[in-house]
Amino acid sequence: MNDTAKPVDPDILNAVPARYWQPLEDGRIQCDVCPRECKLHDGQRGLCFVRARRGDELVLTTYGRASGYCIDPIEKKPLNHFLPGTPVLSFGTAGCNLTCKFCQNWDISKSRQMDRLMDQAAPGAIAAAAQQTGCRSVAYTYNDPVIFLEYAVDVAAACHEVGIANVAVTAGYIKDAARQEFFQRMDAVNLDLKGFTEDFYHKLCTASLAAVQETAVYLVKERKCWVELTTLLIPGENDSEAEIEALTQWVFEALGPDVPLHFTAFHPDYKMMDKPRTPPETLIRAWKIGRKNGLHHVYTGNIHHEPTGSTYCPGCGTKVIGRDWHQLSDWGLGQGGHCTGCGTAIAGRFEPRPGTWGRQRKPIRLTDFARNWQAQQEAQ
Rank of each mutant, 00 (worst) to 15 (best):
N80E: 02
A177S: 03
L295R: 14
E245M: 11
A94K: 03
P276E: 14
E181I: 06
I126E: 14
H262W: 10
R323E: 12
E181G: 14
I303R: 01
H305M: 08
D324V: 03
P17H: 06
E222C: 09
T248L: 14
V169R: 07
I174K: 02
N80T: 02
R223I: 04
G172R: 13
N190A: 15
G336T: 03
G355I: 00
A345N: 05
T170M: 08
G124A: 11
C159F: 14
A211E: 11
V217L: 14
A165T: 00
G358M: 08
D32F: 10
S208W: 06
D330M: 04
G332V: 00
F266L: 06
H305Q: 09
P145L: 06
H202A: 15
G46Q: 06
R179M: 13
P276Q: 08
H41F: 12
V259A: 07
V259P: 01
T264R: 11
S329Q: 09
L191F: 10
R53C: 14
L204S: 11
Q377I: 03
T86D: 08
S67D: 07
R359E: 15
E245L: 13
F266N: 05
F91E: 10
R349E: 15
R323W: 00
V162H: 05
T215L: 13
I289Y: 12
F196Q: 08
T141E: 06
K6H: 13
E37H: 03
G85I: 00
E150P: 01
E237K: 02
E228Q: 08
G195M: 13
R349G: 15
Q132W: 00
E243G: 05
Y270C: 04
C205N: 07
R36C: 09
Q132S: 14
G195P: 04
D324S: 08
T93N: 08
T61V: 02
K275I: 15
C100T: 00
T231C: 10
Q335F: 10
C159V: 02
A242L: 12
S111R: 04
A130S: 05
